[in-house]
């Protein structure tokens, strides 16, 4: 089936895949070819892509997303997300530092706007860190 991962900065993926795992509000769903048509909401988490049926777990691709809309049909999966970072591009130490900074910002926030922004940063970086972590465990 064809997977399209669309962000504001263009299409991250537009190719044939075997399986996609998507974090949704109702829990994680695995989508294989021939899935029932479905439109649902993705929550912050990791999208996992298996490109070929024979691919082992170490060949999976991970994308950290911050929520979006998923559209599944028989031969196609289309995911609209705000941001998608490939697990390979995430540098763990940097993400850790960024998360620490975000938490510090949240604790020292002076007003509502700052707090709101800090919360989003904390969410974003914890998701990225989680994705980097899962990827590392599988690749070992």
């Amino acid at each position: 089936m064809n997977l399209e991962l669309i962000t504001l900065l263009g299409k991250k993926i537009d190719q044939e895949v075997y399986e996609v795992m998507i974090p949704t509000a109702e829990g994680e769903i695995g989508v294989f070819p021939g899935h029932e048509p479905l439109v649902t909401i993705a929550v912050p988490g990791a999208i996992v892509v298996r490109y070929d049926k024979g691919d082992s777990d170490s060949q999976l691709d991970y994308f950290a997303i911050s929520g979006g809309v998923v559209e599944v049909s028989q031969e196609k999966v289309r995911i609209l997300v705000d941001e998608a970072d490939n697990g390979d591009d995430i540098i763990e130490s940097e993400s850790k530092a960024a998360l620490a900074r975000a938490i510090e910002m949240r604790d020292n926030a002076k007003d509502q706007v700052e707090l709101e922004q800090a919360h989003q940063l904390v969410d974003r970086h914890s998701v990225r860190l989680k994705v980097a972590d899962i990827r590392r465990r599988h690749r070992r």
Binding site: V39, T40, E71, S73
Partner: peptide, 11 residues
């Protein structure tokens, strides 16, 4: 597309 019309909307 037809798929969008027939899809299930969750939640």
């Amino acid at each position: 597309t037809r798929e969008i019309r027939e899809a299930l909307y969750e939640p």
